[in-house]
């Protein structure tokens, strides 16, 4: 068996490059860097969850949408809050409804299955079509949360003791996990993930992103806005640096306002769209004087 391996390896390689394996690429609405595309495809090929970190506003959540879009698959989003438990994502057994039904009649209460409601993870596993599962902001939850999901994410199955059923993924979902680095994630969990940090876009990348968001964009406006934006980010005193999504909003405001484009860099109008802290606005006002 082992002797035959090199040939298979080459075959493998051909299969991967020839695109039988679905590949992620930038979409009409989302510009991904080559490194990010690489990481997504590595994670898909190795069937591991992809952990995405990055500054706020670099499109971590939108990535999952873009992957779903690019592969033409359904997206299931599981938003994590500080009180979310791993169990919530698997299933909830609605015992109270069952008690009501038993008291007032009308339904077969012996059939527990009808009181089991699948969570987002359960939904992703039981889907007939392959789906994209986004676990958004995993670091918001308790320390144990990621570890509690190790088995489920590894084996892609879980057991429901109430009905003695095992929910197993019919089609292995692509799992995207985002983290804002508010807390550190456990090592056992990290070991099983493919990791990618979305770096803040360079100027040329940013230009592409803006062009995706706006059909027609005045070149002077674009140049001036970008210059002002990167100048703002480079200022020392700015605490909350403006992000991509704020730039998009700002450019929209600028192009709607009809302000002469050559004044943008010098005056930075509507700075409130870019800077959200009073202190930062004051810093900017001092610099512009």
């Amino acid at each position: 068996m082992m002797a035959a391996f090199p040939v298979c390896g080459i075959l493998f390689y051909i299969i991967f490059t020839e695109g039988l394996m679905p590949q992620f690429h930038s979409t009409e609405h989302y510009v991904a860097s080559p490194e990010l595309i690489g990481a997504v495809n590595i994670a898909m090929a190795l069937e591991k969850p992809l952990l995405i970190k990055g500054e706020p506003g670099t499109g971590k959540t939108m990535l999952a949408e873009a992957i779903a879009d690019s592969l033409g698959r359904k997206l299931i989003i599981w938003n994590i809050k500080s009180t979310t438990k791993a169990q919530d994502g698997l299933y909830v057994y609605d015992v109270v409804q069952r008690l009501y039904d038993s008291q007032f009649g009308g339904k077969e209460v012996d059939n527990i299955e009808q009181y089991i409601k699948l969570g987002k993870l359960g939904e992703a596993f039981s889907s007939d079509e392959p789906v994209i599962l986004l676990i958004d902001e995993i670091d918001k939850a308790d320390l144990e949360f990621p570890n509690d999901l190790l088995w489920e994410l590894d084996k892609m199955e879980f057991y429901i003791p109430e009905t003695k059923q095992t929910v197993k993924a019919k089609q292995r979902p692509v799992v995207i996990i985002t983290s804002n680095a508010e807390k550190e994630l456990p090592n056992a969990f990290l070991r099983r993930c493919i990791f990618h940090y979305i770096a803040f876009p360079e100027q040329d990348q940013m230009e592409k992103i803006l062009r995706v968001h706006f059909d027609k964009l005045d070149d002077t406006l674009l140049r001036q806005a970008m210059e002002a934006f990167y100048y703002l980010r480079s200022l020392d005193g700015i605490e909350k640096k403006p992000s991509t999504s704020e730039l998009v909003d700002w450019v929209r405001a600028l192009s709607l306002s009809g302000i002469p484009t050559n004044r943008i860099r010098r005056e930075i109008p509507f700075a409130g769209v870019l800077l959200k802290k009073d202190k930062d606005l004051a810093t900017l006002a001092r610099r512009l004087k």
Binding site: G9, F12, Y13, F16, T17, I42, L46
Partner: peptide
């Protein structure tokens, strides 16, 4: 695994 699968292109 990744190398075996040719992911290094």
């Amino acid at each position: 695994d990744g190398l075996m699968a040719g992911l290094h292109r």
